[in-house]
Design a binder for these strands. Structure first.
Lengths: 403, 403
DNA sequence: GGATATTTTTAAAATAATTTATTAATAGTG
DNA sequence: CACTATTAATAAATTATTTTAAAAATATCC
């Protein structure tokens, strides 16, 4: 057997340990030799050697000295900033964001594009320009692209990158995945946007350290993200967490999905606006009546609610109640310790969390809510972006290759 | 520093590798040296040495020779049968089963007790006799008890063993967990019965090799078990999968939980019997009218349905439809590839799976059901028993100590 | 039915990792 | 401000593990 064909066990073990070091550093920032040795079940001299190698490969560097309550202070090692680039593309129905991260979660570059997601070939073509621009800028900065992540709405199978909702993005001649791979010449990972958000919250936000968390995002529909045992819940094909299309009203409205009385028809942003307008038409007193009818959007409704507008508060309460009712199902099925409210409605703070809490109190068994907390995200749009980046890093480091 | 206080890295590593070998063997039966070496990322000589040690400690033994398409046939090693004992206690509202397993899933002993679970101190006292008897028999057979597992209904926190539904079992003076620990002098693991069942199906039944599975069990209530990514879904406190108490009818019946219109009120065994009797009172034609009113139970209804009785078939169809409606929520949230029907209603075969399928077709988005299969368990009561045993073995081997 | 190719197993040599011992660094103490 | 207790990092010695090589076993081919 030729020597080239056999990769020795030692090599593989070493590579696994190196990836382990990188994982620890990514997760916890800076680490001492002793901490790494403990985490990897290896001795300090071994870790020292591995760190030396990783440093010469410019993955890690000494960051400073740590604290010790008594003796000599340990040296701290961490990932080297500004070296490796991870490209994150956040595609939404409103706009597109392209953000370049390094391994220390620093933003190296950013490009926002006023392009709306639609299920067409034209969309992919329109995307090409911005992608090239970002690729160009990365090249100028002489960064090494190690991975590309893309968060987008719809039913996305992360194993194949196929989007079952926006089918035009999967054409074999020119798929979104291919387009990204060609633009950046690096491994590409696609992910549903809600799942990216909850991952961001788990790694960098309120859910940090918590292993059973739900996140809810109200936009065109209701998006539910689930962290179970510290991992994103994906299900067989990445469709898990589809709360928006469970039936809450047998005699409800027709949903875009073709079914009747879906949660989406009750609690989406568009349904809120619809109700506001209906309320105004009925002649209900509200500051919103002063606004241009066409300009009324969720943000405006929330602003008015915060200012004390009764109609806005009532309708927001109603939305929260419906949402809480739907969430209480998820609470029974996932038994979480925390629910995070993301997106625009989060700006309503207590005005949305309180009705949700109330509904959960009403519809959940007592044992499920004793330790349950409901909170509004502090990360905003960064949750999705950082989450996508974290997903890419996780995929890269779980894969057998790399350093 | 004294030598006794430091456990060397080598020792820990060796112990981890040994546990890894036992895990592989438990999961896959018999393994060759090469297979183990690959799975453990170690060399063949290393594994040979570990196997020798495990053999001298009477954990494993040579089982025979494997197949090879060309050269020398490999020796197969496997767990040694009839040596270590795992005691499984299956507590249900009908009766209690005490089964002694070895590590190869062989039943070494069994005792069925006609005792009904109730939330009282008397129940624990009544349990003492049977426990002692089984402990006695194990001692006579000179088996070494390595773990005790107990599956029981209710909201069970597997970390603490506290049952939040049957609260009298948790008294600090005499809890179920303590009772079991004292009876068998081994680590005790408590687990919700539905979760034990799905684990059994995953390790030994239809769900083997499938990573995203639901199992449904209709008894006094509806029990949903979830396998996500090959692991039991527990949630924060082990309450996850509580499908029975989500509201399906806002104006429905009052449930035992105090809420209204729960799935349990529509699809439990007792509700089926109630409907059968109501149908008979209304004068509907049925073979069931010939039976003694008091003797009518689920099994009888299913027998008659299989014999073609219209009333029985209609009501079973209705039950399946309601159940399917509830399940379609779970399908949206978990995106499974398989749903297994357990328990008595499983005996109805197609008469229950077809209505469930129909409801899922109606209430689920198309992409969720393309790869979804619905099937009736082939394991029967052994699913729960073997599942509990598997859970104990998993807990023992994941723990840091042992061999 | 013997030669060959393939695979497993064992033994010896080579390498890698851990331990132990030593040196370096730092905060508290008298 | 030296001294001690404590912790970290490094170097040398020791122990484990892997590699390499060789032997044993067996199915296929001619």
């Amino acid at each position: 057997m030729e020597a080239n064909y056999t990769i020795s066990i030692v090599d593989k073990k070493k590579s696994r340990l190196k990836r382990g070091i990188l994982k620890e550093m990514y997760r916890l920032g800076s680490r001492t030799l002793a901490q790494l040795a403990k985490a990897l079940h290896a001795s300090v001299p071994s870790v020292t050697m591995l760190i030396d190698e990783l440093a010469s490969e410019s993955w890690v560097q000494e960051i400073g000295t740590g604290v010790a309550q008594y003796g000599r202070k340990p040296a701290l090692f961490g990932l080297r900033p500004g070296n490796q680039a991870i490209v994150v593309i956040d595609i939404s129905v409103h706009d597109i964001k392209l953000v370049v991260f390094d391994l220390t979660n620093r933003v190296l570059d950013r490009l926002d594009v006023n392009l709306r997601l639609e299920d067409s070939v034209a969309f992919l073509e329109a995307l090409q320009g911005p992608l090239e621009e970002v690729a160009q800028r990365i090249q100028e900065k002489q960064l090494k692209i190690i991975g590309v992540g893309c968060a987008l709405p719809g039913l996305v199978d992360p194993r194949t990158g196929i989007n079952y909702t926006y089918k035009k993005l999967n054409r074999p001649e020119q798929s979104l995945r291919q387009l990204l791979a060609e633009s950046f010449d690096a491994p590409v990972y696609l992910l549903n946007d809600t799942k990216a958000t909850i991952l961001g919250e788990h790694r960098f936000g309120l859910a940090k350290g918590k292993n059973h968390v739900l996140s809810i995002n109200i936009d065109w529909g209701v998006g539910l993200g689930v962290i179970n045992n510290g991992e994103i819940l994906q299900g067989l094909a990445g469709f898990a967490g589809e709360l928006g299309h469970i039936q809450l009203q047998a005699d409800g409205e027709l949903c875009t999905c073709g079914k009747v009385g879906c949660l989406d028809t009750l609690t989406s942003a568009s349904s809120l606006i619809r109700r506001v307008k209906a309320g105004l038409r009925e002649g209900r007193v509200s500051k919103l009546a002063e606004e241009n009818f066409e300009d009324i959007d969720v943000e405006l409704v929330i602003d008015k609610a915060r200012a004390g507008d009764e109609l806005a508060i009532d309708l927001l309460t109603e939305l929260g109640n419906e949402l809480g009712k739907g969430l209480s199902i998820a609470v029974h099925l996932f038994n979480p310790e925390l629910i995070i409210v993301n997106g625009v409605v989060g700006k309503a703070e207590r005005l949305i969390t309180r009705p949700i809490e109330q509904a959960i109190d009403k519809y959940c068994l007592a044992d499920f809510r004793t330790k349950l907390v409901i909170a509004v995200s502090r990360l905003g749009e960064m949750a999705k972006l950082c989450g996508t980046q974290a997903y890419v890093v996780q995929c890269l480091l779980d894969h057998e290759e790399i350093p």
